Simulated assay, not measured.
Amino acid sequence: MSTTTRTIAATREQVWSVLADGWLYPLFVVGAARMRDVDDSWPAVGSQLHHSVGAWPLMIDDTTEVLEVDPGRRILLLARGWPAGQAHVEITLEPQGPSTVVTMVEQATAGPGALIPKRVQDVQLHARNLEALQRLAYVVEGRTQ
Score class of each variant (00 low, 15 high):
V66E: 01
V53K: 00
D61L: 11
G72M: 07
L58Y: 12
G81E: 06
P98R: 06
A110Y: 11
E90W: 06
M59T: 15
A44I: 08
V66C: 13
A114S: 13
L67D: 02
P83E: 05
E90V: 04
A44D: 09
T63E: 01
V53I: 09
H51N: 04
G46H: 09
Q48H: 11
S52D: 07
G46E: 01
V53C: 07
M104W: 03
R74S: 12
P112W: 05
E68V: 13
V45Y: 03
R73P: 11
G85A: 11
E106K: 07
V53W: 09
Q96I: 07
V102G: 05
W82K: 14
A55P: 10
L78N: 08
E90H: 07
A55F: 13
T92E: 08
T92C: 04
G113I: 07
V66Y: 12
V102S: 06
H51Q: 05
P83R: 01
I75A: 12
V69Q: 04
E94Y: 00
G85N: 05
H88C: 02
E65W: 15
P112L: 07
V45W: 09
L49C: 09
G81R: 03
A55G: 12
V69I: 15
P71F: 07
H50C: 08
G111R: 03
S99Q: 01
L77Y: 13
A108T: 04
A84F: 12
V66R: 11
G97C: 06
T109A: 12
G54D: 06
P57L: 01
V105E: 15
T109L: 04
L49W: 02
R74M: 14
L67W: 11
V53E: 08
A114N: 09
V105F: 03
P95R: 00
H50S: 10
G72K: 10
R80K: 13
E90F: 06
L58A: 12
P71C: 05
G46I: 02
L115Q: 11
P71R: 02
P57I: 08
V53D: 04
G97T: 02
L58P: 06
A108M: 15
P112Y: 04
Q48F: 10
I91P: 03
S47A: 13
P98M: 05
P43L: 02
R73K: 14
R74Q: 12
G46P: 02
T63K: 13
Q48W: 10
R73L: 15
E94I: 06
A84V: 14
G81S: 13
I91H: 06
V105S: 12
L67V: 14
R73F: 12
P83G: 08
V45E: 01
L76E: 13
T103H: 00
R73A: 15
A114V: 08
D70C: 14
A79M: 15
G111N: 04
G111F: 03
Q48K: 14
T63D: 03
T100W: 00
R80S: 12
H88G: 06
L115A: 14
G85K: 04
